[in-house]
Design a protein around this nucleic acid. Structure first.
Length: 209
DNA sequence: TACAAGATGCGCT
DNA sequence: GCGCATCTTGTAC
């Protein structure tokens, strides 16, 4: 529906889009109230050829169907009894996507603290954590598009990372060549990034320009 | 602060 | 049944 988002999520390669996504504002108009946060960490998954991806070798099941949708489709899946949030990239039927792994809370922090019974950077420095903070407990928004459900991404309203770092993707092991590929991107020094060591945090700027 | 291990539930075979 | 794009807690340094 949103041509702008569809264009953003289909222009360039998925790893390039992932880097551009850092600093953009993720908005959730929840039943509790408005919540939002700047994206600090995300991973690219490159579809059929990527041995670490859910759609490796064209695998297609009801649960990963969203990856095959239009660019900007919401992909919610469960793992280890948690939920994670993905965005489908590239043209329809090209099953690439981006996993959102961390956000820096901006609006609705009080609700997030209540939802997770935690505070500080433990609130949203991981994919399952940020879903719990937002209060998303089911897959009702799966297969919908960002901008036409209560989830949205604001492309015009964001921060610029001072420096983007990369690493291998978290939680994947023994997936051949693709296991170690540097498709995890994060804002250097931002505390709302999973496994960020305290001494590497920049608590002055949070890593933004 | 770094690492190890258990919890936990659902989708796929 | 099994495996998993995770999280939390406990222990040792």
């Amino acid at each position: 529906m949103s041509d702008k988002l569809r264009k953003f999520f289909s222009e360039g390669t998925t790893d390039e889009i992932t880097k551009k996504l850092l600093g953009k504002l993720l908005v959730y108009n929840s039943p509790q109230g408005l919540m939002s946060g700047y994206i600090t960490e995300a991973e690219a998954y490159l579809g059929a050829k990527d041995s670490a991806a859910h759609a490796y070798q064209g695998k297609r099941t009801p649960s990963n169907e969203a990856l095959y949708g239009y660019p900007g489709t919401v992909y919610i899946y469960s793992i280890h009894s948690r939920l994670c949030l993905d965005i489908a990239t590239q043209a329809k039927d090209t099953p690439e996507g981006i996993l959102i792994r961390g956000i820096e809370p901006y609006q609705g922090i009080k609700w997030m603290e209540r939802n997770r019974s935690k505070h500080g950077y433990n609130l949203t420095n991981g994919p399952g954590k940020l879903m719990q903070a937002l209060g998303i407990e089911d897959k009702k928004m799966n297969l919908l598009e960002f901008g036409e459900t209560d989830l949205d991404i604001k492309l015009d309203d964001g921060k610029i990372p001072e420096k983007i770092e990369s690493s291998g993707r978290i939680g994947v092991s023994d997936r051949g060549k693709w296991t170690e590929k540097p498709y995890r991107f994060y804002v250097a020094g931002n505390p709302y990034v999973s496994k960020m060591a305290k001494r590497d945090m920049n608590l002055e700027t949070y890593g933004w320009k």
